[in-house]
């Protein structure tokens, strides 16, 4: 599956007032790639569906604070 977070490095000027906080991330969740949902996709159990916010593992794209990730970029 495609990764749901992308990174880019904006230009850093030697005259920037603050230390650079790069790279910068943005989210690319699964609905950007899926198209019309295919028939017969795997389903969560009802309990797991509630916990995940979706019936479909294929639509589950969790989010974490990118400022706290170690694998920046």
């Amino acid at each position: 599956m495609a990764s749901s977070r992308k990174w880019y490095a904006p230009y850093i000027s030697p005259h920037d007032p603050c230390p650079p906080l790069t790279p910068v991330s943005y989210e690319t969740p699964v609905q950007l790639y899926l198209g019309f949902q295919p028939k017969g996709m795997e389903q969560f159990s009802p309990f797991d569906a509630l916990a995940h916010g979706t019936l479909w593992p294929g639509l589950y794209t969790p989010y974490t604070n990118p400022y706290k990730t170690k694998e920046r970029g």
Binding site: V30, Q31, F36, Q37, G53, T54, L59, T61, P62
Partner: peptide, 26 residues
């Protein structure tokens, strides 16, 4: 909030499918 965010993803997916339905060409 993570739950609510996931619902936004599912809704976006469904609206995108609605566009496909109305396009009728798929």
């Amino acid at each position: 909030l993570g739950y609510l965010r996931e619902r936004e993803i599912v809704h976006s997916q469904r609206f995108r499918e609605a566009v496909e339905i109305l396009k009728e060409e798929q």
